[in-house]
Amino acid sequence: NQASVVANQLIPINTALTLVMMRAEVVTPMGIPAVDIPRLVSMQVNRAVPLGTTLMPDMVKGYA
């Protein structure tokens, strides 16, 4: 099973992602693959992402 990107903290809307905000976890359903974490750094979320939420492609501006 491939790990997905999960929020390590509450990420407010329009926040630029940093490594500290994300962790890799095997979850269902799968979200953004953990291998993409370096690519996500400095991209912004388009909604508030609660702690423990799996990041989906439509939550990150410019990802999809």
Rank of each mutant, 00 (worst) to 15 (best):
V49R: 03
P12H: 12
V20K: 06
V6I: 13
V6G: 01
Y63A: 05
A24V: 11
S42H: 11
A7V: 12
Q9G: 06
P38A: 13
G52I: 02
V49T: 11
P50Y: 12
Y63V: 04
M59R: 03
A16G: 04
L19Y: 08
L55Y: 01
V27T: 12
L40C: 04
L55V: 13
V35C: 07
S4Q: 02
Q9F: 09
V20A: 10
A64V: 11
T53D: 15
T28K: 03
M22F: 07
G31S: 02
P33H: 15
T28W: 04
T15A: 09
A24Y: 11
I37T: 11
Q44L: 06
G62M: 13
V35Y: 05
E25K: 03
V5T: 05
P38N: 07
L55M: 12
D58P: 08
K61S: 13
G31P: 00
D36Y: 05
V6L: 10
T54M: 04
V45I: 07
P38I: 04
I11M: 06
L10P: 09
A7G: 03
G62I: 04
A24E: 14
Y63E: 05
A24R: 03
Y63C: 06
D58V: 10
P38D: 06
M21T: 03
L51V: 10
I11E: 01
A3L: 08
M22L: 14
I32E: 00
I11V: 12
A3Q: 07
A3V: 08
P12Y: 07
Q44Y: 12
V27Y: 03
M22H: 00
L40I: 11
A64P: 13
Y63F: 12
T15M: 08
I32A: 03
N1K: 03
S42M: 09
A48W: 06
P12T: 10
V35G: 10
A48K: 07
P29F: 11
T18A: 09
T54F: 02
V60K: 00
S42F: 12
P57H: 10
M21P: 01
N46T: 14
N14F: 13
K61D: 09
I13V: 08
L19F: 05
L17M: 10
I13A: 11
V20C: 09
A48R: 10
A3Y: 05
A48V: 09
E25H: 04
K61E: 13
R47S: 08
D36L: 04
E25A: 07
R47V: 13
